[in-house]
Each structure stands twice: as structure tokens, then as C-alpha cells.
Design a protein around this nucleic acid. Structure first.
Lengths: 195, 195, 195, 195
DNA sequence: AATGAATGAGCCTTCATTCAT
DNA sequence: GATGAATGAAGGCTCATTCAT
């Protein structure tokens, strides 16, 4: 069991500051002050400022990727897969809210490194495959473009970092179900008339 | 007829650099080098670096807000309003792609100034009201939460800056219609169709 | 008769700004703005910023030096010479208040150029000679050190730039007479008793 | 025992440069070069360039104010108070010569901050009160204007920064006594002396 | 592990000066 | 005479990083 050093404090402080001010606008001094150590002391824990960024975002990024890999491998109807992706995505966002926010602001869409770009690509590819499977099976509308559908879903969820609050009135799961129901069944009232 | 100054060149260069490296990580020297002037010369056009950021993002921000105000005031069925919002949003994204990308990365969700926060808030409020009107009129499902629906739509479209390319195979309008159809009618095949 | 160009406006504006903010902290842009021309236009009137400083301070500096030269050459009792120096000094301060203030802040005691240092030296030398003449003639106390006396007088008058206001309640001449009476007769009540 | 930091070296170097070139015309690089560090390193000791100015001038300013407060509270004849003020003033000028010179050039009469303006005002007020007390008691001539007398005395002493040299032939105390004797008894030979 | 002084590069901004129009 | 864009050098300040203690 590793000695509880100040590593976690440091990463937490960095995460909050990176989210609030942005990575580039946050100084190591800001972080050191927040933690209560001297700037130079941070270098006992890291080799560079970017190390801290990666430490902050690694967990949610890997978790979300792990989850969608897992879901893809399951034998479930496409709509159910979408529902699970949604819930997992929302739950991870909720549990790692600050970290995930930093990821979306500082990593996604930037070219920080090949490693992160590869993760981005795999995630999009996987969700696209799941969508395509649903179209092929006839579960999803044949007019659907799988990639657009996947990316729209990702966008709807990732945008949560702009408005969701973990201590707000609605839980992440409730929101996930709302969004899922919109994506799967649409907003327009289903005309139940003909039958 | 005034001599064409380099203002447009400067804003364009700034936009590209802000998008690619982020505002804080872009130096005025980067921009000046790109334009081919000395960095001090930029101060003939701006009073501060932030001025340049605002100059970059002002157009798409105001345009999108203007458009949703207009749509809100029209007498149209809710679903049609949503379709128009989608098309306008996508068209603005397409036409001001780099600028809009900078807006979403550097302004939206940050607290840059009261002015921008107010614009953000008005946009969300307006789309929420339109959604709510659709629910109240029975056009949209009564299970819908207006704000979540509005924000999901915004998220789906704004995420386009992460994957859409203006010179790509699909036009912004086609994508807007795709996303709209997902949001309005859902991805799942309408099994209750009369035929 | 020279065309009334904006030269005087420029020197006046410069004088006020130099006094209020100091020479180094005043930019040519400040001056240009004050006058209502563009920065570059100032170079039709000057060759360098320092030119402006010298233009501002030349008048009071030369005037005060001229006056003491004149007084020195007159055939008057020492105390009368002191009184005239005082009145002239105070009158010049009053008439060229802003200019003289700039001189004392930016030229006196700095090493701006040999020319100004030479003027400084000549003034002090002359007042010292006048004082010495008074001591030698027995008019002034034999305990007096001529240079200290001269420099104290100069100091008392030059300090007026720190508190005198041309539109204040007391005129410069009244103040000159006050100071003169202190220096010549002292503050302590002259004991008229013994006779 | 704390390692002797370079704070004193920095303040000393700054003082000399501020006096010789003026505050605004002295760059932090000048100071850093003088001390033998990089200009950025100065910010371990200060928060801004102005901090350095205040550090330079604080000591003489507070000392002179402290001394006149003390003198005012003593039960002494007015002439004796004036003599003590003179000696204290001259001694402080001598002991903190460079610092005091900077004070007089850069703080006195400028509007650097409320704090310094308040100190200025208190000093002038106090010396004026002492002069007035002398007039009221009959020790000083009834023709005296207390404020003018006080300010003239201040001017005569402050001007010393323009000519006094701590390593010169005459001590500051000797000069103080010279000036005092001029101010109190006047330069003119007392013709009404009993003998 | 921690400190805190120092580094050295770089950043935003200012500004005296020039010059084509 | 005037303009205003541009220059090129600094200036104040910040900061990631290093290192002796």
C-alpha cells in the first residue's frame, strides 16, 4: 500500500485549475500555492507540467474507452448498447467531472500526442461500428449515417461538461436516459394512431 | 476607398493559431510572423491580445444568436423551428469554421467577460423555450425535459468542430438534416408505421 | 512675423505632461493626443523627444541666469542684490511655472548635457560671489559661508515649485519678500532693547 | 541565521540608479546587471518595479517624519526646535544620502500614492505648527508667515541633495547649523548689538 | 521530501522614430 | 504640413525548470 503522499492533492488541485483557467494559463506556482508546497517541490512528483495534464485526464479517458470496448463485445441489441454507452459515459463524466472537463478542453481536438489521438480515434470508430451494426440489423433507420449518429451522440454527452453539475437536481443517469430516449425514439410524439 | 489594411489577414492568422494551439499558447509573435509584420505592429490594430480573440469570435457568436432570435419570433411548428435552428447553426459553423471553433474552445464555458456569458445564456434560454413550447403544444413528447433537449442539440452541433471539415464529403446542411432527423424522429425504426 | 504654427501648443502640452508624469514617463503619443495631431507629425517640429524637453526648459533657465548676471553687474548694496535676485527668481517661477518645474525636476541635478550643467554652475558661482561680497564688505555676518548661504537661498526658492500655485492667495513677490526677510534678518525677533 | 540574501545589494543598486537616471529611465535590467543577476530573478524580492522604489525611499521618509513628530512633542523654545529639526534633517540626509535623494526626486511632489502624500502633508503641517507657535509666543517675528517659513526651511535643506556630498569638507551638522543661523538670525550683521 | 533562490527564455506591451503617401 | 502604418528595440513581468542546501 503506497504511502499517501501529496500526489493526489496535487493532481486534484491541478485539475481544478486547468479546468478553470486552462492548462496554458495555469502556472505551477498556482498549483503549488493551492497545495501548500513550494513550486520547486512539485518536481519531486513530475518531470514536466505536461505530465500533470496527462495525469489529470488519464483516468476518464481510459475508463470511457474501456467501457465502450466492453460494450461492443457484448451480445446485446444495438439500442441496448447505445443505452449502456450513454449511461457509462454519463457516469464517468459525473464521477470524474473535473478531470473529464480538462480532457475535453485540453486534449480532445488538440494534437497533444499520438497516444491521445489514437484513443480518440478508437472511441469514435467503435461507436460508429455499433451504430452501423444497428443499421445493418434493421434496428436503426436505414437513413442513418452511422458516423454522424455516433459523433452526435458523443457531442451531446460531452457537452454536458458545459452545463451539468454533479450536485445539481438531476442525476447523470437520469440525464443519460433522457438523451438516450431523444436519440433513440426522437422528440416528436410517436403517433400511436394507426394500430 | 481606404487602402486595404492588414486587419483581415491578422484576424485570420490569429484565428487559425488560436484554434490550433489555443489562445494562451499562441504568442503575438506567432501571429505577427504568420502575417509578416513585427509583433509590435499588431498594436496598430488592437489594444490587447484579448481584443484579437474577441475580433475572431464575434461574428459567429452574434450570427448564431441573431438567427435563433429570429427563428423564435416566427410562427412555425416547433419541429420546423428545430430544423431551422439546426440548419442555421450548421451553416454558420461551416461558413465561419475556424472562428466558431475558437469560440467554442476559448469563450463558451469560460468566464471571459459578462458580455459573452450573457450571449451564452440567452442562446440556451431561447432554445429551451422553443423546446418547451413544443412540449406544451403536444408536438414533442411529454417526457422531454426542455433544457436537456436543447443542450443536447447544442452539444451535438457544437461537437461538429471536432470532426466536420468544410471541404469534406458531406455538406453542413446534409449533416444538419441528419442530426435533426435523429433528434426529432429518433434512430430506432418507427415500427408502428401504418404500412 | 512667424506664422503661428502649433509649435507653442506642442511645447505647452509637453511641459504640462513632463511636469505631471515626468519626462521619461511621458510618451510622444501623450503629447500628440493632447495637441490633437498624430504622433508622427511631431517630427515636423522636433528631431527627438529630448528636443522638446530642452525647448520647454530653455526660457526659465536662461531668464534666471540672465537676471543674476545683470544684478551682479549693478552697483548695489549686497542685501539689495539679494532682494532683487529673490524677486526675479520668484517672478520667473511664477511666469513660467510649469516650465520651471520641469527644469527643476528633469534638468537640475541630472547630467543631461554639458550646456545645462554649465548654466547650473554659473548660477551658483554668481550667487556665491554676491554673498561673499556681502561678507567681505561687512554687510553680512562674518560667520556666513557664502556658498552655503547661496545654495540655501536657491533651495528655498526652487522648492516653491512644490507648493506655490500661481493662482494662490499670495503673490510670488510677496513670498519673495517673506523669504528674503527671513534670510536677511532672521526669524527671531530682533531685540531692540539695548538702545 | 538566514543566509544573507541579496536584498540589500538590490536596494542599494536600485537607489544609485534611480538617483542617477531617474526611476522611469532605470530598467530592471540595469539593476540586475549591477547586482549580477538576471532581471527575472529580481522578482523573488519584489512584486513590481515600484516596490523597489518604495523600498529605497521608505527609510529616510519615515525617519524624518518620526523625528519631527518627536521634536514637536518636546517642551523646548521654538528656536531650539528649529535647530533640532535642522540637525535631524541634515543628519538623515547625510546617512541616507542616495535614498533621500531618490525620495525627493521621485516621491515628493509626485502623486505616487496616498500613503506618501499623507506623509508629505503631515511633515509640512507639523513644521508649520512649530513655526506658528514661535510666532504666537513672540519668539519669532510677527511678520512671519508660518507656512512660508516652514517650506523655505524645508526647501533649503532638501536642496542639499543637489550639492552636499557626504564625503565633502563640511559635515552635515555644520551645514545644518549654518543654515539654521541664517534662518533664525539672518544674514545681515546685527547692527543693534549692545556693544 | 522539501526549500527557495536563481535561471534564461519568452511574453505582452510600449514607444521613439521613420517613411511612403 | 500631416498621416498612419510600420519598425525594431526595450521594458516589465511570468514562468517552467534546475539545483545547492
Amino acid at each position: 500500500m503506497p504511502r499517501p503522499s501529496r500526489w493526489n492533492e496535487i493532481v486534484d488541485a491541478a485539475a481544478v485549475l486547468f479546468r478553470d483557467k486552462g492548462f496554458a494559463a495555469t502556472s505551477l506556482e498556482d498549483i503549488a500555492t493551492e497545495v501548500g508546497v513550494w513550486k520547486g517541490s512539485l518536481y519531486h512528483y513530475i518531470d514536466s507540467k505536461e505530465d500533470l495534464l496527462f495525469a489529470v485526464v488519464r483516468e476518464p479517458a481510459e475508463q470511457i474507452l474501456e467501457q465502450i470496448r466492453e460494450i461492443k463485445s457484448l451480445d446485446l441489441p444495438p439500442a441496448e448498447k447505445v443505452r449502456r454507452i450513454a449511461r457509462d459515459h454519463a457516469r464517468t463524466l459525473d464521477e470524474t467531472f473535473v478531470y473529464a472537463s480538462v480532457y475535453l478542453q485540453e486534449i480532445a481536438g488538440r494534437n497533444r500526442s499520438d497516444e491521445w489521438s489514437a484513443m480518440d480515434r478508437e472511441y469514435v470508430l467503435t461507436i460508429t461500428e455499433i451504430m452501423q451494426a444497428g443499421i445493418d440489423s434493421g434496428d436503426f433507420s436505414s437513413h442513418l449515417d452511422a458516423r454522424t449518429a455516433g459523433l452526435s451522440m458523443v457531442g451531446a454527452f460531452n457537452w454536458m461538461t458545459h452545463w451539468y453539475r454533479p450536485d445539481g437536481p438531476r442525476t447523470a443517469i437520469e440525464i443519460a436516459d433522457q438523451i438516450c430516449s431523444i436519440l433513440l425514439e426522437g422528440m416528436i410524439t410517436r403517433s400511436t394512431s394507426p394500430n
